[in-house]
Amino acid sequence: MSEVIIPNVTRDDRIGSVFNHLFRIIAESEKLEGKVLWNFQDVHFFHPFFVFPFSLYRYELSNKKNVECKGMNDVVQSYFSTIKFFDFMDLREIGDFNNVLKCYKEKSYTPICRFSLSDKNIERMQSIIKDVILQQIKLPINIESHLSYMLGEFVCNMEEHSQGKYGYIFSQYLKKEKSLYLCLADDGISIYSSYIFKEKHLDKIDEYESSALRLAKAGYSSKDRPEAENRGYGISTNSNLLVKGFGGAFFILSGGAFHREEAENNIFIELPKSIRWNGTIILMKIPLSEAKNVNLYKYMER
């Protein structure tokens, strides 16, 4: 039986470059009929920006094919178990969720959390996860509002626009780099599909899904009131906050296109028709060394 050798993805040199490995895995896995065997013999560590979408892809693929994993060493097995790589940390009872997450406060990463986009406890869930992340960072800086803003605006977008069933959150703090890696995703329709569905700004969208990403980035909402452009600030203000404020990096993959923004690099890529991501993934690299100087209000207005 053909197998897919999973590479040891330890770095993300330019934000989202881990997808170079994931796209290859997707292309090889999609070619296999019925049973897919993933071989982890070379794996010792995964960068957080790789492990998160890889986990989501595994879940989606396992709904279509029989996915088997082999060659995993004990360390990787243990890490996968702790971050809930195979089964996600499902938000059910808020009380339970709070207690279960307590043990992560002394770690540098959260589990991969899954929540229903129609769940009434989404606010409380965000608050709990934010508190865990702040405890993990252990730096004398106050980024509580910044983190609340990022989580809040993107989760709101998932609820309002994605038409998805679930949202996902994962984060890891890499102490050596003094950077927080924050990942969010939904399993809904893509940003492009959202504009088409709402029949908004169709004059600005062409056949390329990246045109929709560009539109979203520029702040065109599919839900503006007819008399005012009062929405669409979530992606635009957050990417500004992240890149210009924190000096970090922003990546969004939605449907058939992705966008990457760093200090000197701002690019939109249209994927080949053979590859498509169901839903939207957002990756944010948040350097924290200068975080205390970042004025949130300055970036909220843009």
Partner: peptide, 28 residues
């Protein structure tokens, strides 16, 4: 800002279309 027209700043950005997986992997 609620009732004002948005001032949008077009950012300089590149745009690449990848027709196949090989091109995509090479571009990424």
């Amino acid at each position: 800002n609620r009732n004002k027209p948005r001032k949008r700043q077009e950012q300089d950005s590149k745009f690449v279309v990848c027709d196949d997986i090989e091109t995509l992997l090479s571009v990424v």
